[in-house]
Amino acid sequence: MNGAGLRRLGLGLIPWIGAILLWYAVRWSGFVNVSLIPAPHQVAAKFFELLTKEGLLIDIFASTRRVFLGVALGILVAVPVGFLLGWYRPARTFADPMINFFRALPPIALIPLVIVYFGVDELAKLVILFYASFFSGVIVMYEGVSQITPLYIRVAQTLGANQAEIFRKVIIPLTVPHILTALRVALGVAWATLVASELIAAQRGLGAMIQNASTYFLLDVIYVGIICIGLIALIMDLILRKITARLLIWQDRAIA
């Protein structure tokens, strides 16, 4: 790592250190009942305990897999649907209110219905996560695709491109950035929806862990669960950002 990289890492760490200090400060200030706020080091100790004795990794894996599958399926459908809606204006006027209606429904409100129709197994959780990723992804896709200017298509036509070539060589490259954005948005939403999806009788998973811990008032476990979700979401986002930067090297973006 070079000097600039180290500096950036340092800058990125400062807010975290600040947050931990603030955490201790609130705990020691006496304004809040100390038993309601486990200290950072207690949470860290709990983390290692869960990791070594309780199979925290299994929970992490279960949750990550659900998010992954939900987002993958959601985006797989959202990309063509969003593309068509963005491309054909009439389709958009026709589908817009509907999509906004469904998007406005919080996935958690659907849980009772999902249980009725899909039971309480893995499928039910997947349905919730699919729902959340699809509707967030589809909007990003169609907003993006509808902003593609016809100029590049016209240019390609004047150079002799046929329909298939226009699609392959012009429309796809112009759509990739929107797919990546949709993926990022959907990932964020899916992690946010995870706990809700795992409310449905889940055995394992970070959401289930938090859920069970709350019944027994195990605050430190709840903290571990929340921090894990945040961290994994952050790591996934970072990876996706790296991939985006690599694929979209041509984009005119201010890179820090």
Partner: peptide
Amino acid sequence: AGPGPERGVIFQEYGVFPWL
């Protein structure tokens, strides 16, 4: 009947492909 490569067009907005 439509655009074609025997008639090159240079658009006012350039239209260079940014991804290439």
